[in-house]
């Protein structure tokens, strides 16, 4: 094999983690940002040196939730909005496993909103990667809890009259011990955030801002995938710089980086203390 003598390419790392038996292509539209998140995730796992057997990927329903199916880990593709309670069962039953939830804005914040805040509150050692494209992609472009006010979708044809959620603020307020935001333009920073999130012993949220040019972009005249990803670059402000900016200056900006951490105790660890104290000898 001539490839054996070549230096290791980034794509080689990628292919090492794809499921050998899964028939590609994937379900995502050409130019979708979810693949970039998947790439960042794989590099983070590779960098952390985790074995494939100790990683469990859990997802709900939606475009982002198809992600675990393609990867060669233990994968649990669940019902809409319920990835976090399924993941809670896996993690609490087997605290030695690394449990990572892949979810979207509709999955995590609408139908799964209650589970989301309670997973944060427990501070159970799960990393949630929330791919936020501000719309329901799989069902054809309906408004989601992160669709901005006045934005168009197939269920807000006259502009959205609702307010939107900020997932990172919600997670921090609910008790998550690590919260970061990234975008699919900032793939390297995203990989770093995912790495830190997995290393954090507690509930971690990484919000990955992504593009749905097929629906959000088309309905809101944001251009194609490339134009949308370019806009993430233009709007992004690193958290350190954001601290020196006024509220007006931060209008429409995307603050990226590590936003929030706490030293809160972790749920499974605390329960283990209960077992240690009460287990019959």
């Amino acid at each position: 094999m001539t490839t054996a003598t070549k230096p290791k390419q980034k794509s080689d790392v990628f292919h090492q983690y794809l499921r050998p038996k899964k028939k590609f292509p994937n379900v995502w539209c050409p130019g979708c940002g979810i693949g970039i998140v998947m790439g960042a995730f794989i590099r983070a796992i590779d960098k952390l040196g985790l074995s494939k057997d100790e990683v469990v990927l859990v997802s709900g329903i939606g475009c982002s939730s198809r992600f675990p199916v393609y990867l060669d880990f233990n994968s649990l593709h669940t019902t809409h909005g319920r990835a976090l309670p399924f993941a809670t069962g896996v993690k609490f039953s087997r605290p030695d496993l690394k449990v990572i939830v892949i979810t979207g804005d509709g999955d995590a914040l609408a139908i799964g909103g209650n589970h989301f805040i309670h997973a944060c509150r427990r501070n159970i050692d799960i990393t949630a990667i929330l791919i936020n494209n501000h719309i329901y992609g799989m069902t054809g472009g309906q408004g989601s809890p992160t669709t901005p006010s006045e934005a168009f979708s197939t269920t807000t044809p006259y502009g959205n009259v609702e307010k939107h959620f900020e997932p990172c603020d919600l997670a921090a307020a609910a008790g998550a011990s690590y919260v970061a935001r990234g975008t699919v333009y900032h793939a390297v920073q995203l990989e770093k955030a995912i790495t830190q999130a997995i290393e954090n012993r507690g509930f971690s949220l990484v919000e990955a801002i992504s593009n749905c040019h097929t629906y959000f972009g088309r309905l809101n005249r944001k251009g194609d995938g490339l134009a949308m990803i370019q806009s993430f670059k233009d709007r992004a402000v690193p958290v350190a710089r954001a601290g020196k900016m006024s509220e007006e200056e931060l209008e429409d900006k995307l603050v990226i980086g590590k936003l929030h951490t706490t030293g809160a105790t972790e749920f499974c660890d605390e329960y283990q203390k209960v077992i240690d104290a009460h287990k019959e000898k």
Partner: peptide
């Protein structure tokens, strides 16, 4: 007996958690 109990946020979460634990 070294087992685990969790009070979930609702019954939807409860059944989801036991399915996850069973697969684990």
């Amino acid at each position: 007996v070294g087992g685990k109990f969790i009070q979930m946020e609702d019954e939807i979460g409860s059944i989801a958690a036991i399915i996850g634990a069973s697969i684990a």
